[in-house]
């Protein structure tokens, strides 16, 4: 303990608030931190890299033949939906990370610094977007190796990816709320996955809606996971599969409905999360 423990003269004038550019820079720094955490924690990397690949392999080769009669055809149908499902699971890390910060006091340390009030949350969500983009890319690449083909053009593919990222952005707020309400990080995972499993599986990600009993179809049809999966299939596959039993609807309606769902989710959960966070700290 020597020289470093000295002080600088006080700054002449302290700024009264954080500028936008400064706040964005802090957001980048905090996003960097979350990405570095992943580098030190290969277990998490496995969760959003290896696990979805396992899902693709499992469903394609184990169930694909039984569900669609051909593994290749099933992969074409299921991959866009699996990407959507995986996207929802990854958002849970926003809540887990936030919860760890809250329980370990790191959140307080960040709040005690002259940092924009919104930067910690924005940093997490930005990092989440990076993880999401990585996962989508990875799953598409693995799918291509196994025989998945994009039936549309690059613009449509990018639109599909963009749509998923927007939805992830909105859905992150659900994760934030769980992260704030849960007592410890394990409960975030437990609660998050318990809620996500029915929502993702009771959709048309793995099987077409019309193969299900009528009462279930009603839920499946309004499930945002179904809608987003429909939109992604349409944007990635286009007309390629028209005429087969895996009919792909036009992209416009499900895409707009997905955006509507995203807006509703964000409008409900963002204020709720902020309110819960204010109460907790």
């Amino acid at each position: 303990m020597t020289a470093a423990a000295t002080t600088a003269p006080p700054p002449a004038e302290l700024s009264p608030r954080v500028g936008l550019a400064e706040g964005l820079r802090q957001t980048m720094t905090l996003a960097w931190r979350t990405i570095v955490q992943v580098r030190h924690n290969p277990w998490e990397l496995g969760d959003f890299s290896i696990q979805p690949i396992m899902f693709v392999l499992l469903f394609t080769y184990v169930f694909g033949g039984a569900i669609a009669g051909s593994t290749g055809e099933y992969l074409t149908f299921a991959l866009p939906g699996i990407i959507v499902m995986n996207m929802l699971f990854i958002t849970m890390y926003v809540g887990t990370g936030l919860n760890i910060d809250l329980t370990k006091g790191v959140f307080d340390r960040l709040r005690s610094l002259p940092v924009a009030r919104w930067a910690p949350m924005a940093g997490r969500i930005l990092a989440d977007q990076v993880k999401q983009a990585w996962s989508i890319f990875l799953l598409l690449a693995v799918g291509m190796i196994l025989g998945f083909r994009i039936g549309t053009d690059v613009a449509s593919l990018l639109a599909a990816v963009g749509l998923m990222l927007v939805f992830a952005l909105a859905f992150s707020w659900v994760s934030v709320l769980v992260g704030v309400l849960a007592k410890d990080p394990e409960k975030v995972q437990l609660f998050g996955f318990t809620a996500l499993f029915p929502v993702t599986f009771v959709s048309n990600v793995f099987a077409p809606t019309d193969t299900m009993p009528g009462w279930l179809q009603k839920f499946v049809e309004v499930n945002p996971v179904t809608i987003l999966a429909d939109a992604s299939r349409a944007l990635m596959l286009g007309d390629e599969t028209t005429g087969t039993q895996w009919h792909v609807a036009s992209a416009t309606t499900p895409a707009l409905q997905s955006l509507l769902w995203a807006a509703v989710i964000a409008a409900v959960f963002a204020p709720l999360s902020v309110w819960a966070l204010r109460r907790r700290v």
């Binding site: 302290l14 608030r17 954080v18 931190r33 570095v36 370990k104 006091g105 307080d108």
Partner: peptide, 29 residues
């Protein structure tokens, strides 16, 4: 915001990011 620019705080319980290294923790701040 001005107060935060003046004060260094060490809370009662160590508030370090356990997943980062010591050096990264300080670099982050």
């Amino acid at each position: 915001h001005q107060v935060r620019q003046l004060v260094g705080l060490t809370g009662q319980y160590a508030a370090v990011d356990e997943m980062l290294t010591g050096a990264e923790n300080l670099l982050l701040i």
